[in-house]
Amino acid sequence: MPTGVAISDVPEQLFGAAERVLLRDGPSALTSRAVTTEAGCAKGVLHRHFADFDAFLAEFVLDRVRRIDSQGAALRNSAGTGTVADNLTGALTDLFGSVAVAIVGLVTSRDDLRARLRRTTPTGIPVLTEAAAMVVSYLTAERELGRIAADADVDTLAPTLIGAVHMLFADRKGTPPEAGAVHKVVTAVVAG
């Protein structure tokens, strides 16, 4: 590896490399060597910016979780437009079509990482917990607009939707589900 070459925005470059390795090769292939090789930098670069590899992974997961916040704002802003099922289908397809499914596998497979993440997400699984909060916020807005039943239990509907749609996307290497399959699940859960 070349030395003495300045790298701009090192954490983001390393996070991007981690995402590529995770998506391509899965959680078990995600090592500090794989990340730095993918990023085209020396292994020491990662350790100059993070206390250890689990600290790096925790920051990587939290960075990707923060992206859900912007998706959540967009979903909530769509309240009152289109159809509820279409809005949820689009948002959940975008969420689970991204690195989210792979992150769930990463978090569940690494005890030390999960322990670190418990500091910010004391219950649930990061990504899924934030996704459920995103859906609760959206469904609450739609309930206030009268577009779903006034007595709809959004706190139960949201994790039900997240779990059901996650199951459709759970095969990391398989073909992603068609929009119609996601829409069918969303419609059944919301209507139920």
Results as ranks from 00 to 15, higher is better:
S8Y: 06
A18W: 04
G124E: 04
A51T: 15
G82I: 08
G72V: 02
K43A: 15
V45K: 12
E178N: 11
A79F: 05
E178K: 11
A73R: 15
P27T: 02
R118W: 09
F53S: 13
A164M: 07
G40L: 04
H183F: 15
C41A: 04
G124Y: 09
D86P: 08
V127P: 06
E144V: 11
T108G: 11
P27H: 13
V136Q: 14
G80I: 02
A115Y: 12
V127S: 07
D25P: 07
T89W: 09
G26D: 07
Q13P: 04
A73T: 15
E178A: 13
V101K: 00
G97L: 06
I148E: 09
A131H: 00
L117I: 00
L46H: 02
A74L: 11
M1S: 14
S70T: 15
T156D: 15
L57K: 03
L57G: 04
D111V: 10
M134L: 14
F96P: 00
L128V: 01
V189Q: 06
T31V: 07
Q71H: 13
L157D: 03
T187A: 12
V127Y: 02
I7S: 12
R20N: 06
D69N: 09
M1E: 10
A149Q: 09
L117T: 01
A152G: 05
T120Y: 13
E130D: 00
V190D: 10
G180F: 10
F15H: 00
D94S: 09
V189P: 03
V182K: 05
A6S: 11
V101S: 00
V99D: 05
V190T: 12
A188P: 02
V45A: 14
P11D: 09
L22Q: 01
R20W: 07
L62E: 03
